[in-house]
Design a protein around this nucleic acid. Structure first.
Length: 825
DNA sequence: GGAGGTGACGTACC
DNA sequence: ACCGGTACGTCACCTCC
């Protein structure tokens, strides 16, 4: 029997002490397929140099006799093989050790303390990753599998009758085939509403479910049905509502179950309530409950159904493409779908009036509708990440950038015959985290002012191109200088100034990164020629991976961590930026500013053509694949002074291009922790100044705004300050306004969660005494008067003062009041 | 008891 | 534990005189 399938979900089970892989996927007839594949687990020991054949064969005998007696299984070394491999770029002899059960890899490795062994590797890799590496059954590709169909079979303790699949096949051979079209997954979105925010503390009032041609809200509240409530199903109590949820999931049988923050809220809540009522919560196609992984980032895994928490994917990966200031469902849906959540004032279900229930149901349904639509919107990105990195969707949607890149690297090492380096253990991580920081990039102090006629050059993928051009990595770092080697600029590391040398023999990591850069170019072109969501996602995915390489090398949890490499890369970054600044100045331009990989300068008398020719010349002088590009020409730009000190502020500027489009960096306008009034005013002031080249109209606007503020004509909405709560309240050493407000919210039984934006405004002091800002902070619905002086001195003026200073206009001019002279007292 | 420095904190840039 | 260094600015907190 032979059939086609696309792998979606990977799991494994033990049978007679051995590991078997259980892949759940779909075929072209849209049937759900389970493929069971064997897996021969193995890891490596790398031998010390110069061992003779006899020694090696003696060692193999010793290794082959290893058995694990105290294990719950009978695990032993099944066989060994000797291979010529590479490890960290060096040729090594290694023994491949096959064992009965991968889960005992650690225990067996612990017994391998023979003096002939240099080190043991690849027993710390996730079993599924190891399987994909070994057999190349990569997620979301098409495969042809031949083997025995299991139907009411005794095989694997009757697994085929337990699993809810259309076909279960025991694989003999699996072959990748050319894919016809991308899979269109069956997605089911869900969302719950509960009475208490604390998980399990209240009752779940309703659950919404949305899939293709399917919209439902399940509830147990006794509400009089109105004609608009067709989508609502009523149940006798919370327990039977949860049962109905499980039944619906089983009936729809989706490939993907998607929620928004469902790892942290919806699924744990459902589990807690199911446990409370002793309701069966077996969502898996194997009739098992979801498996919850605890930790800082909890996750919920369901056998056979890929559970995706969209919030997780957006937070770690997709947020860089978004403008949204918060990553809540409402704002993200608004940006990506131009659709919003339904406005509904959340309250305890006991306080909801008869008429309000319909709105609450609609609200709940809409959340699932948005989640469903977002899942489709982001599907190309999840698909492409999964295919490029070759890891399953569940992992891809939860991994950080470093994890993704590391997986990409691991899945691309075979070509280099490399044995995979170990993950740092606890002690090592501790050591790495304690080390002092390496010096970072260079930022040029700008001279404050308004400038005309500018251009910006920047290096394309600077850190990554340095890694490739100078072959920088853990494995290419030389202990001693060699004749043919790349030399880093002098850098300070561990208190001493030093220079590092890297081999000119290409290392596997820089090579893999180079391939990534080539793919980036290829996919970018592909997208240009054929713009669609898939080509766009593909191009973006490699772009993100390419950009993450330097961060990965300096990340304490990385397998290929290398502090020397990181310090060297940053040394080159500083060198090239400084050199460029100098060259630009020497060529008769005037450099205004530079940060890390960029340089901004005025053209003076020079023409654009001259600038472009000059760029060509600069590029011809750059080594390796390093390259600079013209970011753009700008009509005007403004740099301001710091509020403390009278020199130019870094990372704070505004530019206007020739089409009149503004590019604002660092200013309060782009900071979400400033009130809308200050942000909008600053934005308009910058716009006027950059368009007009002078401050006259802007000054008028400021004076008008100040007058409005003073006469309380500004709505309170514009004065709300939003600050994120970053940690549990009790961990704050310094009690700032937003912490005070969060505490008050808690007292009023309002939901307070880590990560949420705390909103408040500043009211007039109650007494004459000078009160702390936090004493004057109020919740948005508290009815006090806003503090005019606070908003003037702490929001409006700080936001615009330094801009006007460029035009020699002082604060007193701004306030529009004649100054009190000393003589008047 | 007010001035000024410093640390904690949040946010942005690259 | 889940990319890191540079930088700005606010507010609370502490010390000093």
């Amino acid at each position: 029997m032979e059939l086609k399938f696309i792998p979606l979900d990977y799991g494994y089970f033990d049978y007679q002490g051995r590991n078997f892989i259980q892949i759940i996927g779909r075929n072209e007839k849209n049937q759900r397929i389970c493929v069971i594949d064997s897996f021969e687990p193995f890891f490596w020991v790398i031998l010390k140099e110069n061992l003779n054949e006899k020694k090696i064969s003696e060692l193999r005998k010793k290794i082959e006799s290893i058995k694990l007696e105290d294990s719950e299984r009978r695990t032993k070394v099944e066989k060994t093989e000797v291979h010529e491999k590479n490890f960290l770029g060096k040729k090594v002899k290694a023994i491949k050790i096959f064992i009965t059960n991968y889960k005992d890899g650690h225990a067996i490795a612990d017994k391998l303390d023979f003096p002939e062994i240099e080190c043991r590797r690849e027993y710390d890799i996730n079993l599924i990753t190891k399987y994909i590496l070994d057999k190349k059954i990569t997620p979301l590709d098409y495969f042809k599998v031949s083997g025995e169909i299991l139907s009411n079979s005794e095989e694997f303790s009757g697994i085929d009758s337990i699993l809810d699949v259309d076909i279960c096949i025991k694989a003999e051979k699996i072959q990748k085939i050319e894919h016809e079209k991308e899979i269109e997954p069956k997605i089911l979105a869900f969302d719950i509403e509960a009475d208490e925010f604390e998980i399990g503390q209240g009752e779940i009032v309703m659950i919404s479910l949305v899939s293709k041609n399917f919209q439902k809200v399940l509830t147990w509240k006794k509400v009089a049905r109105t004609k608009d409530m067709d989508f609502v199903e009523f149940y006798k109590d919370e327990a039977s509502m949860i049962e109905a949820f499980v039944e619906n999931v089983k009936k729809i049988s989706p490939d993907i179950l998607v929620g928004y923050f469902s790892d942290g809220f919806d699924l744990p809540y459902l589990r807690a309530r199911a446990e409370f009522h002793k309701v069966d919560f077996s969502l898996g196609i194997d009739n098992k409950k979801p498996v919850f992984a605890r930790g800082k980032y909890p996750s919920a895994r369901i056998t056979g159904i890929v559970h995706i928490d969209l919030f997780r994917f957006i937070e770690t990966i997709y947020s860089q493409y978004l403008k949204s200031e918060t990553l809540g469902l409402d704002e993200v849906a608004s940006e990506l779908l131009s659709e919003n959540k339904i406005d509904f004032d959340h309250k305890h279900s006991s306080k909801i009036s008869e008429e309000e229930w319909l709105d609450y149901f609609k609200y709940n349904l809409q959340d699932s509708v948005l989640t469903y639509k977002l899942a489709f919107k982001l599907w190309p990105d999840m698909l492409e990440f999964s295919k490029i990195i070759q890891e399953p969707l569940f992992e891809i949607t939860r991994a950080g950038m470093s994890q993704l890149l590391e997986n990409y690297i691991m899945h691309n090492l075979e070509k280099y015959n490399e044995i995979i380096e170990k993950r740092p253990i606890y002690d090592e991580i501790g050591k790495r985290k304690q080390r002092e920081k390496v010096e970072g990039a260079f930022v040029l102090v700008p001279k404050a002012g308004l400038y005309e006629n500018l251009a910006i050059f920047d290096f394309t993928s600077m850190h990554t191109s340095i890694i490739i051009s100078f072959n920088i990595s853990k494995s290419t770092l030389l202990e001693n200088k060699e004749k043919e080697s790349y030399e880093s600029p002098e850098v300070e590391l561990e208190g001493k100034k030093q220079v590092f040398h890297f081999s000119q023999k290409p290392g596997f990591l820089p090579e893999i990164v180079k391939e990534l850069v080539d793919k980036r170019k290829k996919f970018k072109k592909e997208y240009k020629n054929d713009p669609n969501p898939i080509t766009k996602a593909r191009s973006n995915a490699v772009k993100l991976l390419t950009a993450a390489v330097h961060g990965y090398i300096g990340f304490f949890g990385a397998r290929y961590y290398s502090l020397e490499s990181s310090a060297s890369i940053l040394g080159f970054v500083r060198k090239f930026n400084k050199e460029t600044i100098e060259k630009v100045n020497n060529a008769g331009y005037h450099v205004i500013y530079g940060d890390t990989d960029s340089v901004a300068f005025t053209l003076g008398e020079k023409t654009k053509e001259q600038v472009k020719d000059f760029l060509k010349k600069l590029n011809s002088e750059l080594p390796g694949i390093m390259e600079m590009e013209l970011e753009d020409f700008y009509k005007r730009g403004i740099w301001v002074t710091k509020r403390t000190g009278d020199f130019g502020a870094k990372k704070k500027y505004a530019l206007i291009d020739e089409k009149g489009k503004l590019k604002i960096r660092g200013f309060e306008t782009v900071r979400r922790d400033w009130c809308a009034l200050a942000r909008e005013l600053q934005d308009e002031v910058l716009d006027m100044i950059l368009k007009e080249g002078n401050a006259e109209n802007a000054l008028k606007l400021v004076k008008e705004t100040i007058e409005k503020l003073k006469s309380r004509k500004i709505s309170k909405e514009k004065l709300i300050i939003k600050t994120q709560l970053k940690k549990p309240l009790e961990e704050y050493k310094s009690i700032s306004p937003h912490v005070t407000i969060a505490k008050r919210m808690l007292e009023q039984d309002m939901p307070v969660n880590i990560g949420m934006l705390i909103k408040f405004y500043i009211a007039e002091p109650k007494s004459n005494k000078k009160e702390l800002v936090r004493a004057r902070a109020r919740l948005p619905d508290e009815p006090d008067d806003y503090d005019i002086d606070y908003y003037l001195d702490h929001q409006i003026l700080p936001a615009i003062e330094n801009i006007f200073e460029v035009f020699h206009i002082s604060v007193d001019d701004l306030k529009g009041k004649k100054q009190m002279k000393l003589g008047e007292f």
